[in-house]
Nucleic acid binder design. Structure first.
Lengths: 211, 211
DNA sequence: ACCTGAACACCGTTCAAGT
DNA sequence: ACCTGAACACCGTTCAAGT
């Protein structure tokens, strides 16, 4: 009765922790419960480690979230599909719709983009991601656009996609009254596709010298 | 020596607090120090009130932030410019560029969109805001689009704008290495304008039956 | 009806150890 | 070198009062 119950495991072995393991555990928590539930005590519990052990690998919680964003983004870019060989404008739409669907599917990405957009912005592109994006970019070159125009057009699609996903988060609630202006606040797959189609049509107009 | 120093004011008068005053103080903190600095203790200090007094007017901190988002959004919509009477496509671009600049100018909006996008999504449009938006919408009707196409096109511009602003926040840091793919991560006024121009060109193509 | 402090269960971070 | 608990200065929220 005088001793505390020895319910929990004791001390972790010396070299048993790592950045990778910490990030994997953090990701699991974020996918399961959302970024707001990610605290250092929760994370330590999941790792069976002391809370302060985490500080050996990351300077702060913010730094940890930055690193997590980086890992998740790498995953996203790795899963980017290669464009097919149909007409460039149709392929470009498909390419980004796939991108959009991918982002929608990854809860961790949505969580971070919604609650720590800064961490996403900090993350630089890896070499592999650059190659994937290059493939999309080349679609635009094949439309006969100058290098600068192609990059700008691709960037517009990219920005639209990223921004749209940021918007989609938390917009899943029912509208509170019926006074919605022709569904202007509606946000979803259909609205995404429409905006993207318009941008691509704009690029096409530019390629044909009608801008 | 035995008494605590009576440095601070005593108790607030009975009916002296209000939702409005609380929101105004909260807004001041957000504009000055950012949303992350907004805590109930800080807020209470600014109000010279007890921390728990705030709970008489708001159920939770989240509810308070929701209300703050609503107030700020109302301001934004009230400042929306009326479109001029030039060509519809040029006017539409100007209309949204003004919108974008407005959002950029209001730190409170940026803070909330960045750190509490959910609160923005919850907010419904007031009647006044609807009238302002109607003016922009009518630009599209004058292009000869169907009601549905006009609303969809306007919505695309709106979504692009909102999403873009969400992206801009925290993207103000210098890129960490030079491997940036033709400045694809660049985000600013120029990129905004370009994306918007493409969307409008796409709408034009649609209006002329080229989509 | 409206304002309040005490108390609670949480945070992130620093520091001075243990091994 | 790597892991740890104690301690600190914060949070948001509940509750049982005061007026």
């Amino acid at each position: 009765m005088t001793e505390a119950a020895p319910t929990t495991r004791r001390r972790r072995a010396r070299g048993s922790l790592s950045r990778e393991e910490i990030l994997a555990a953090a990701r699991e928590i974020v996918e399961r419960d959302g970024l707001r539930q990610l605290s250092l005590p929760t994370l330590a519990k999941q790792l069976h480690s002391g809370v302060t052990s985490i500080y050996w690998y990351f300077d702060s919680k913010d730094a940890l979230v930055d690193a997590l964003a980086h890992v998740v983004l790498q995953d996203v870019h790795q899963q980017l599909p290669a464009p097919g060989d149909g007409r460039w404008d149709a392929e470009l739409v498909d390419y980004f719709v796939a991108f959009h669907d991918l982002l929608e599917t990854l809860p961790a990405y949505r969580e971070i983009v919604a609650f720590a957009p800064g961490s996403i912005a900090h993350s630089t592109l890896t070499r592999g991601a650059q190659r994937r994006l290059e493939a999309g970019l080349s679609l635009l070159r094949s439309a006969g656009l100058s290098e600068a125009d192609a990059a700008a057009g691709f960037g517009a699609c990219l920005n639209f996609t990223r921004g749209f996903v940021a918007l989609e988060h938390g917009a899943a609630l029912p509208t509170r009254d019926g006074s919605d202006l022709a569904g202007l606040n509606e946000i979803g797959e259909e609205q995404y596709r429409h905006g993207l189609t318009l941008i691509v049509a704009g690029i096409k107009a530019q390629a044909e010298g009608r801008l």
